[in-house]
Design a protein around this nucleic acid. Sequence first.
DNA 1: GCCCCATTGTTTCGTTCGCAATGCTGCTAC
DNA 2: GTAGCAGCATTGCGAACGAAACAATGGGGC
Lengths: 249, 249
Amino acid sequence: MAKRDTQILEIVTSEKKVEVAQLAERLGVSTVTMRKDLDALQARGLVVREHGYAMLANPNDVGGRLAYHFAEKRLIARRAAAIVADGGTIMVESGSCCALLARELADSGKTVTIITNSAFIANYVRDAANVTVVLLGGTYQRDSQVMVGPLVRTCAQEFYVDQLFVGTDGWIDGVGFTNADQMRADAVRSMAEAASEVVVLTESEKFGHHSAMPLRLTGKRVTLVTDDGIGSEWRASVERLGIGICCAS
Amino acid sequence: MAKRDTQILEIVTSEKKVEVAQLAERLGVSTVTMRKDLDALQARGLVVREHGYAMLANPNDVGGRLAYHFAEKRLIARRAAAIVADGGTIMVESGSCCALLARELADSGKTVTIITNSAFIANYVRDAANVTVVLLGGTYQRDSQVMVGPLVRTCAQEFYVDQLFVGTDGWIDGVGFTNADQMRADAVRSMAEAASEVVVLTESEKFGHHSAMPLRLTGKRVTLVTDDGIGSEWRASVERLGIGICCAS
DNA sequence: GCCCCATTGTTTCGTTCGCAATGCTGCTAC
DNA sequence: GTAGCAGCATTGCGAACGAAACAATGGGGC
């Protein structure tokens, strides 16, 4: 049941490590059912199992970040997947929403080509025959499994696509979206040069936080896909920079 | 014990799927010990565990191919690792011996940079802080997790290194080494253009077999690292093409 | 020659796991 | 309305599992 999945993820993300039996009791189901649920979540890369426990994956990994706000992220990913044409080619950056977008596309059965700098995403949709992945070269970031550095730009220049999908970790009023890692932020810019439109995927909770590196997507057509929890003041702030908004619900 | 590891691998590779208890009995150890061994092998990516069973990984994956002739391959990888300088940069292709070479370097503690077209290798040495990985871009081959296609050449051109390490699946007298996959063979040639020497890593069993795509490494200095099971007639055949031989033992 | 420490394998114990049979709920067709 | 069906969840059982404490082995160092 989809509802229980999100409850499980909420508990696991807040407590990092939970006994399976305890989890079963708290949600009022048997341990057998709980193990089945957890196995399904593990197959999707959202939790890690150990004998008797369910744990959060390393939060530096994309896998760990996926579990936070999973319900919203999937909603956003699903909405974004809808605007990708069958037979199309898109660029995708390495954020957790982006990984879910790739997964949604893989499950949709659409034939798509995904150009990405995330080795995690390449692996995440490895089972899907309808998805062709082109991986951009670069220096491999150990934790995040993302390619960064000058080679990303060299590779990205070989392409030109309609849309680049990116994640973000915050928003600064009057400045725009931000990213905590300067190497990854630079990779985003490299990829943005090879796309006519940038689609930013992020939960509404990210508004009100920000980190140090503005993405500086000025001069590009930018669209935001987020959930409907975004407040009207932030919505105005986004629109003021000429960014289109698309709410998933 | 290292000896038992190879015995386990021999059994698992020949039978694909074995009960843990049966395996323990056949090698004369307790089930607890056997499980400990299998867990260690799983951590190295050589087998896959299931409740009660040990199975071979998908043989299309590098993980599965690793298990075949593991002892010889590791010997070869260890010998090859010895010729890599501390602080050096090498190129590595996607074969299973190459993956073991990367693993040996990771465990050696040497500071090295590995330029590769194998996302599997990047992930395989992800834990090692002493290894920096540069991943070459390209079309991601689902099964093998290897990048191929024209982007590999574009990326490889950005570098020039002393040594490129490659695997092979066969040898044709008078022609040279071969590879079954034409995309991967082309990737090897692309990478070879950016290296002054090509070091081929392969078990001696591969001599006597061959597949359809010659690697055509003519014009390069080529060295073969193999195990001491190579017959004198094959040795002569190799030397006749001006290829140096280095036997691990 | 002897001791000490490290490694490797074993035993035991309580817990968790996978599986198959069974029970429960909600749905559709008639 | 109800018969039949399909999808979840539960129960019960034997096998497998992880942890930890214990025994055997096997080299150095003095």
